[in-house]
Design a protein around this nucleic acid. Structure first.
Lengths: 195, 195
DNA sequence: CTGTTGTTAGACAGTCCTGTCTAACAGTGG
DNA sequence: CCACTGTTAGACAGGACTGTCTAACAACAG
């Protein structure tokens, strides 16, 4: 068996496999609903491998969320870069990404919102990881909106963030109907009204 | 011990106590996180009392959500009645109710959204109970908006519903900041823009 | 009075959960 | 070559979970 390098971000093949497998199962069924034994069986890893990389299940969950957050940020930045300089095109590209997410067959709501639902206490590490991610979401949106001719883009960014959160929840609850289209229409109306 | 009448809605003192206690604990900590033993200890009831009224924990959860849904609907109807005929006043009263909810010290997000997060599969009875509630929420909003001079109030109702869902999630995630104010401002802007 | 229903306390089965520990092995760095 | 790290399989402890069952009692209906 190959021994693993130790890059400063702590990424190793087994660790990554653990996180990927854990995410898939947690996202499908829920954090409390999935036990570590299930994850280990699915990933075909031994229990000590998990407890070598993480001190507890909770730490694994935090790592899962952080990895997912990094992945999402990367993807969004790539899409915005591809969309070019037009603020309107950038905003539409931003929504288009969600559209793809919503209609993927694995879609099961927002993993971060679901994490907060299962770890409602704000002081828990899991909840804190979600806060970090959602804050960076809002920051991205604000930066995106600063391209428009709006006096104060900050409140608009927050409003659109609410629309997207709502669309994520609504699409999951009702099984993916027209939530995102409503959110996009409302967002465009708000941007227009803010001129 | 007093024997209990059996009204057609199935409400009895012990059953109600079970539901109320279960709601409090589920809402504070989560559905999977709270065991029935904890609920029974808190309510000071025997296990057989629970399984006399409900076939399973899941059935108890459904009953909890249905009771909560009825309670919310009742409250909203009362508030709208009190607000009088002015559509704008009614909408503001609607938001004011959420404001009170958000700033209550027990606030811990939306119990229905959290239920969906823990029961992500749409085919489960719990998830279905949430769908029923959220649909009636949208219906109420649509009726409320039909008072305005709007050509098609339906999409606006959906948009405002998204804002409120988003505000519920955001307030819980970040610990109750300005989410609802943003939602209200956006809602008023959308109503204005729809004229 | 008698039968029925709601209730109680507690034992119990059977499963699942997290986390620890051991013993053995493979590959790498020094 | 030796020490170290990552890994494996599996046993294990200790607890928590849902749901069942029993035996006894209380209140009411007929």
């Amino acid at each position: 068996m190959l021994n693993q390098r130790k890059p400063r971000d702590g990424s190793t093949p087994k660790r990554d496999l653990l996180i990927a497998t854990a995410f898939r199962l947690f996202y499908r069924e829920g954090f409390h609903a999935v036990g570590i034994d299930t994850i280990l069986a699915e990933a075909q890893l031994a229990k000590m491998t998990l407890y070598h990389h993480f001190a507890s299940k909770e730490e694994l969950i935090v790592a899962v969320l952080e990895q997912r957050s990094a992945l999402v940020k990367e993807k969004v930045q790539a899409i915005l870069k591809e969309a070019g300089p037009s603020p309107r095109k950038r905003l539409l590209a931003y929504f288009a990404r969600y559209e793809a997410f919503f209609s993927s067959k694995e879609f099961n709501g927002c993993p971060f919102i679901r994490a907060v639902a299962e770890y409602p206490d704000i002081d828990t590490p899991v909840h804190q990881a979600v806060i970090r991610h959602k804050q960076s979401d809002i920051d991205t949106l604000q930066e995106l909106l600063s391209g428009f001719d709006i006096a104060d883009p900050k409140p608009v960014a927050h409003q659109i963030a609410l629309l997207i959160e709502g669309a994520l929840v609504s699409a999951h609850t009702f099984g993916n109907t027209s939530a995102l289209a409503h959110a996009r229409n409302a967002a465009l109306a708000l941007v227009k009204a803010a001129h």
